[in-house]
Design a protein around this nucleic acid. Sequence first.
DNA 1: ATAGAGACCTGTGTGC
DNA 2: TGCACACAGGTCTCTA
Length: 292
Amino acid sequence: MPELPEVETVRCGLAPTLEGALIEKVELRRADLRFPFPRRFAANLKGQRIEALRRRAKYLLADIGTDWTLIMHLGMSGSFRLEDGEPVAAGARHYEPGKAPAHDHVVLHLRDGPRVVYNDPRRFGFMLLVRRAALDQHPLLATLGVEPTGNALSGAALAPLLARRTAPLKAVLIDQRVIAGLGNIYACEALWRAGLSPRRRAGSLVRADGRPTERLERLVETVRAVIADAIEAGGSSLRDYVQADGTLGLFQHRFAVYDREGEPCLRRSCDGVVRRIVQSGRSSFYCPGCQR
DNA sequence: ATAGAGACCTGTGTGC
DNA sequence: TGCACACAGGTCTCTA
């Protein structure tokens, strides 16, 4: 669910509270999320200081003490909220007054700070404690592609990854080994901005000599722009996603194609209608009129 | 190697 | 009102 802009927004919301905080206790309300929690998970966190809260692709990385990093992933429906005093902050989903909130799976108790509650109805998220020295070699992180936020993303960087690939462009864009953190929504939006069809063969954006085409350079720019715009808007709130303080993202109001099947294309001078197709099991939204 | 399907899990919206 | 079904921001594993 949450893609890079949502995870980055969560990171910004949590960092002021978490960075420098001392973990007094970790409460696990169940034995597993996507994976079982390791034996000593809570014990290893107890008494440790959170040194920094970083992000790589859709992963949150909390540096714990000198030796460990806590890898956290929100899956499709994970969210954090900060609680002071009585349980439940405004904006918590799946909450009925008088009842314990559903799907609160992990609670971090900080010394002199609010509780940090992880909620995840579908439980596709997870938390994993790994040795920081080996973090980059961890299987989850080792094969990640380039971040779309810095200066690393370029036509030249992508060309070798797209060359000769026959898979649809959309499928390759959301492959985390290519662009780290790009997901279904923002891939659709970037393709619309670039005027490129999600069905086009990925390899068609690379010249025979291996250099990027103008179309690929254009796509790189729209990917960077849509990610930057979404971060600025605090991400997109559809069902489960909220920021750490319970407020909603705003980018869903700016979708050009995502979830707009049957509605008119927003491009001036295009009278097309947004279509939904299924590519490798995921919905792709695009305008057949102006995306080629 | 690469592309696609299925699996994991719960909640919500739609149509009958 | 209830029920069945489709679908949802992700990613791992298996099969051709």
